[in-house]
Design a protein around this nucleic acid. Structure first.
Lengths: 339, 339
DNA sequence: ACTGGCACTCAACATAGGTGAGTGCCAAGG
DNA sequence: CCTTGGCACTCACCTATGTTGAGTGCCAGT
């Protein structure tokens, strides 16, 4: 009972602070929420909550502000995930549905997520690794440069430029291409290691160095992980908080420019269903101590392939943002299945 | 003579303001530059310069600040382009030289440019349109979905998903692929319109709708302009100016999120050699009234293909930035030639 | 347990005076 | 005609000094 009210007070503080962005005092609380007790009682509860570390005072004689721990409690116990309105769901579906290729899906997703959450959005490319080779093309760019284009069965395309030690003529290249194709096409990637080695050994000795280079590049390209790419959108939303908060945007912008950092943020998305919330100092990244990161996994078929999410100030609307991230992840999964 | 000194004063004002970011007064000017006259004389010159619109006072009894017109004059008549140091040139060459493919070149370029200018960098993808088809691959993703991968002779790769009205079996697809390839491979794009129409007409009637869809997608993909992509880097540098200046970052960040805007900024790079500078309100873009944009074209072979540049506050170091943009454009051209 | 009352704190706002960098103008000198 | 020192003036900026009021903690009374 008593414990119940304390939690209600914490919830009320978080909600008020998120909407007003100003420290909330006992009097304002009883006015805005019907708690049925007097400000003095609330003050006692607040003192207790402060002792337990859920809220803090910026300075004496100011209202209270939730701490990271307070938000954590709010997210874990007090708040649900706010579902999107039908209109929003429809808009998402239409917007993502009209994407023409994978790049387009990714770009649209990041824009969409940034727009509906009004926050910085991150989207990781789906991992499409294990795949058999559909076609390989060798293109002579200059006498000593060959470009290899690899098309996987899933539709992934990789291109690489290979340096040759000496000039290579077209007919030799055509020969290599034909033999390479029979060596790898259709074979699952596990077998390719072997068949491709045969290809190199069976090549005429004057082409041996080039064949070896091709094999090396091919194997590297096949294991290349496209899901190491993360795209970013909505950075302008950062400026909204501007100087108003202990959210100096410079370190945040700097952190978000590092692909490695973005991967780390998305990579630790643990919960396989639902959304992951990392609050303030819980973040494993320097420069993002006063931001929260909300992520979700998305899937293709029934395998989870990658993550997406948003980065915003710790005083964000958690239920709404979690709902949006969750919904967008679902819709992306659906779109990818259709493709 | 008199005119000469006035220009020297303008130059001194621009240089001081750029380095201190504070309005510069007559006394400070004579101290920092050896102009050989007294502050009173400078005051007269300043009054004249103000009448002509080159400088302005933020308020009465403050020093002077260059106007957009003042910067324009400075760039056109007074400043040279500061060449980079050998160390910087070496660093550029090494950094760009180790790129593995086109995407990598672009990404490295944008990072490099942002880093050395300490400003927001833009890089447009090179236009690689006019090109003959090297190979076309049709891949069945699901019974009613076909993916087309198009490899151009220059190494450009485009992929498209095509919806079929009914299921298509593998053998029919193999047939289409073979005939499509003979119809377009090696033909310059001008002829393809015709040969490809023949292909569609000669297809068996049950495949006619699919063949037509393929042709439509192919023609669209061939005219697709890769140079409509612009990548962005170094946005964190915007925050450095922060609240200190009439450079509210929000509108700038917003503007820079629009691909269309970025294209417009880079697209109007007129001077075929050297660099283009657009100052403050000269910019054709809303939200960038208090920024300057410095761009240069880069080339492959001896054709200019696209532009790159930086966006920064009007009070930037013009000679240094122009030198950096120029040098990077040159090095990118060189790298592209080598590939 | 809850509540009303009360003294206390302190950021935020406002007001007022002082300081100084900077200006424009002018009359005198090259 | 250009330059210069002198001088009165302006005004952003800083500091000092109230004043206010939202908010608190504590306590005695229900």
């Amino acid at each position: 009972m008593l414990e119940d009210r304390r939690l209600a007070v914490l919830r009320a503080i978080v909600e008020d602070y998120v909407s007003t962005h100003e420290p909330v005092g006992s009097k304002a609380l009883v006015e805005r929420h019907s708690l049925g007790v007097s400000p003095a009682t609330i003050r006692n509860d607040m003192a207790a909550l402060e002792d337990e570390g859920y809220i803090a005072q910026p300075h004496t004689s100011a209202g209270r502000v939730p701490t990271d721990l307070g938000y954590r409690h709010f997210v874990d116990r007090l708040a649900g995930v706010k579902p999107l309105s039908p209109a929003e769901r429809r808009a998402i579906h239409e917007f993502l549905g009209s994407a023409v290729d994978l790049d387009d899906v990714m770009i649209r997703t990041v824009r969409l997520l940034a727009q509906i959450t009004r926050q910085v959005a991150l989207v990781q490319y789906p991992s499409l690794t294990e795949s058999t080779v559909r076609h390989i093309e060798l293109i002579s760019l200059s006498p000593t440069r060959v470009m290899m284009v690899l098309i996987a069965k899933t539709g992934r395309v990789e291109q690489r430029v290979i340096e040759c030690s000496g000039p290579v003529d077209e007919s030799a290249l055509a020969d290599l291409r034909a033999r390479l194709l029979t060596a790898v096409a259709g074979h699952p990637s596990a077998q390719v290691d072997d068949t491709v080695a045969d290809f190199a050994e069976s090549s005429p000795s004057e082409l041996r160095p080039l064949a070896n280079a091709i094999v090396a590049t091919l194997l590297e390209a096949m294991t290349e992980r496209i899901d190491e790419r993360v795209i970013l959108g909505g950075t302008a939303h950062l400026a909204r908080y501007g100087e108003a908060f202990p959210l100096a945007i410079q370190p945040v912008l700097e952190a978000l420019e590092e692909q490695v950092v973005l991967l780390r943020l998305l990579g630790e998305t643990t919960m396989s269903n639902g959304v992951t919330v990392r609050i303030g100092h819980e973040n494993p990244v320097e420069g993002l101590e006063s931001t929260s990161v909300i992520t979700a996994r998305y899937s293709r078929g029934n395998k989870t392939v990658a993550s997406l999410g948003v980065v915003g100030p710790t005083h964000m609307d958690y239920p709404g943002t979690m709902g949006a991230v969750h919904a967008v992840a679902q819709y992306v999964s659906r779109i990818l299945d259709e493709q």
